[in-house]
Simulated assay, not measured.
Amino acid sequence: MNMASIRDDELPNATGIPSAARRTDISPPPALEVTEELLHALPKTDLHCHLDGSMRLKTILELAEQQKVKLLADTEDGLAQAIHMGQVCKSLDEYLVAFDVTLSVLQTAEALYRSAYELAVDAAAENVRYLEVRYSPALHLQKGLKMTTVIDSVLEGLRAAKRETGIKYGVIVCGIRHINPQTSMRLAELSVAYKNRGVIGFDLAGAEASFPAKDHKDAFQLILKNNVNCTAHAGEAFGPESISQAIHYLGAHRIGHGTRLREDGDLLNYVNDHRIPLEVCPTSNVQTGAVTSLAAHPLKFYFDYGLRVTINTDNRLITDTTVTKELWVAHKELGLSLEDLTTILVSGFKSAFLPFREKQDLLRSVNQEIATTLAAFETRPKMVRQPA
């Protein structure tokens, strides 16, 4: 049976009974220990990754020096502290300080190219096979760049990384909730123009409270009429009504975060029944206060209930994370097993904004790579600890 091409509800579990929660035929050896090394070696996706939140500290400092931009600190350690890297923030304003810093140096074609290239190279280094990079061109115009130049610069950087590492990628253009809907429409038109030229989707990002998704429905109507994929940040800092608007007003094919979906059982079942994937970013949700702790995160509940969940970084720099780290905390803090994690990895590839045939080929390759990697780790000699 070709596991990559059949529907979720056709996938058998260990008892032979179809299960929506179990989405891969890979059964890891029961005794195989989950380690960060193993999780690093497995093929992964990162479907929710912001360009302006995923730069290298060194790059920010070098770009600031070249562009004569004054930063909050002039060393990597100092800058990390200033942007609250990896720290739980007291408020959204505190969290957003980091984006003020990164955007201050992302206003030239060269900086955009370099940041996109380095992000893809860093992702490939932890065996991310497919990366979707999102950002809003409207936030990179402070020094007079055209939106088309912004898009082209990022795509050129990603292409260079692909030539070097083989990583597959796509760009998601973001509308911003608190910027006027007319700007979202311009960005939607840009996305349509760049369809099949590297842009694979459209998103709505930004503060949810006081900025409802339905205000931007015209932009999403243009996106849907042109058969472009779309997602939307929803249910991160606002209730399930935000998710409902993203689905029913915007037609979102995926939901970014969806942390508060559990508060509305009827909507949760709708998302499950329609196989709408959730782009889950566990550590980021703790950092921003969307959940009080990793232990309180709904990821495991969503997975156990049968929702299609994917694990992502959100902002690699600001949250100080990688996909490998996110998988590790899902195992250590939430109790997800190796079988659970491999299922989630496959769900990431299934949820990618890729054409069906290309996705099918990629899934075949990924399933084989997962099986090969697990077998290789199973046959490795066990480390024997010597008594102290």
Score class of each variant (00 low, 15 high):
residue 215 D to M: 07
residue 256 G to M: 06
residue 251 G to A: 05
residue 205 A to M: 03
residue 206 G to Q: 09
residue 213 A to F: 09
residue 270 Y to M: 00
residue 215 D to Q: 11
residue 218 D to L: 15
residue 215 D to A: 08
residue 273 D to H: 01
residue 252 A to P: 10
residue 254 R to N: 05
residue 155 L to C: 01
residue 276 I to S: 01
residue 244 S to R: 15
residue 260 R to I: 09
residue 190 L to E: 08
residue 224 L to Q: 15
residue 224 L to G: 13
residue 173 V to T: 07
residue 278 L to E: 03
residue 211 F to H: 14
residue 164 E to V: 02
residue 279 E to Y: 05
residue 223 I to F: 04
residue 275 R to H: 13
residue 226 N to K: 06
residue 196 N to V: 01
residue 210 S to H: 04
residue 235 G to S: 09
residue 176 I to F: 10
residue 267 L to D: 07
residue 226 N to E: 08
residue 219 A to P: 06
residue 223 I to L: 03
residue 250 L to P: 04
residue 166 G to M: 00
residue 217 K to N: 02
residue 235 G to Q: 08
residue 261 L to V: 00
residue 224 L to H: 15
residue 227 N to L: 06
residue 225 K to R: 09
residue 232 A to P: 12
residue 187 L to Q: 08
residue 214 K to C: 10
residue 227 N to R: 14
residue 210 S to N: 07
residue 163 R to A: 15
residue 254 R to E: 08
residue 236 E to C: 05
residue 222 L to H: 12
residue 201 G to N: 03
residue 230 C to W: 03
residue 239 G to I: 10
residue 240 P to K: 13
residue 276 I to W: 02
residue 201 G to H: 01
residue 235 G to Y: 07
residue 258 G to T: 05
residue 194 Y to G: 02
residue 270 Y to F: 03
residue 163 R to I: 10
residue 254 R to L: 04
residue 280 V to N: 07
residue 268 L to V: 07
residue 175 G to Y: 10
residue 163 R to Q: 15
residue 157 G to I: 06
residue 214 K to N: 13
residue 226 N to Q: 06
residue 205 A to F: 04
residue 199 V to W: 04
residue 158 L to G: 00
residue 267 L to C: 10
residue 269 N to T: 15
residue 165 T to Y: 06
residue 249 Y to G: 01
residue 252 A to L: 11
residue 185 M to W: 00
residue 263 E to K: 12
residue 218 D to Y: 15
residue 191 S to K: 04
residue 163 R to H: 14
residue 250 L to I: 03
residue 199 V to I: 08
residue 275 R to P: 06
residue 240 P to V: 11
residue 156 E to S: 10
residue 233 H to S: 14
residue 214 K to L: 10
residue 166 G to Q: 00
residue 240 P to N: 13
residue 217 K to Y: 09
residue 252 A to Y: 07
residue 216 H to S: 09
residue 157 G to Y: 06
residue 187 L to E: 10
residue 188 A to W: 02
residue 227 N to Y: 08
residue 248 H to N: 01
residue 280 V to R: 05
residue 199 V to N: 03
residue 169 Y to W: 14
residue 228 V to R: 05
residue 186 R to I: 13
residue 238 F to V: 12
residue 261 L to H: 00
residue 200 I to M: 11
residue 217 K to A: 11
residue 276 I to C: 00
residue 164 E to M: 04
residue 225 K to P: 00
residue 184 S to A: 13
residue 173 V to P: 01
residue 268 L to I: 04
residue 194 Y to D: 03
residue 174 C to D: 11
residue 251 G to W: 02
residue 216 H to L: 07
